[in-house]
Design a protein around this nucleic acid. Sequence first.
DNA 1: TCGCTACTTGCGTAGTTGCGCAATCTGTTG
DNA 2: CAACAGATTGCGCAACTACGCAAGTAGCGA
Lengths: 97, 97
Amino acid sequence: MLDVSDLEATRQRSAAVARALADSKRLCVLQCLAEGELSVRDLSDRVGCQVPNMSQHLAVLRNSGLVLTRRDGNVIYYRLADVRILEACRLLQSISS
Amino acid sequence: MLDVSDLEATRQRSAAVARALADSKRLCVLQCLAEGELSVRDLSDRVGCQVPNMSQHLAVLRNSGLVLTRRDGNVIYYRLADVRILEACRLLQSISS
DNA sequence: TCGCTACTTGCGTAGTTGCGCAATCTGTTG
DNA sequence: CAACAGATTGCGCAACTACGCAAGTAGCGA
């Protein structure tokens, strides 16, 4: 019904996604995941940070719904939740250049 | 030459744009500006905040290159710097829904 | 010049974020 | 069971952010 508070709620969700994208390491994670799923250690190696730190960044991406997980034994594989996320990364890059 | 530090610098710039988008009020500002240029007071009225607060949000958008200004007398009009910014807003909304 | 409006800036505060480190949890293997 | 690897969580700290409020700057008209 075009409620003002609905528009605000929508903006809040959009802002939450933007906040998840507002970190260089998390953008790097998403770009790495473009090639396929990776474990936490794989990602921490590629991004160049410690495993607990990576786990916290992945929690941010998880809570924003940008990544999904799959457990295989004691390894957890992360993957992109939506191809549009890569589109968003490219668009951010395009705007910022 | 596909330098790793260049990729990192690119991600930093992209992250900076995302950070500018990572606020509900600033998203509201950008959506208001989709219809055309507006003054600071216009924007603070529409968004529902005090003028100094709006001025600070506009400074964030300005420093990220998302908006441009034009002075007419003692009124400063803000406008979008790039139509792709609206595309980014729509994409964020699409991802977050 | 004075007074007014439009806008920006500085400051203090409360809340948030990213990070390293230690501790903990979870699942596998011997 | 014990020992181990993979991953998450909790804690403390430094840096940053949004906000309200007060003060300052810029331009216009009397």
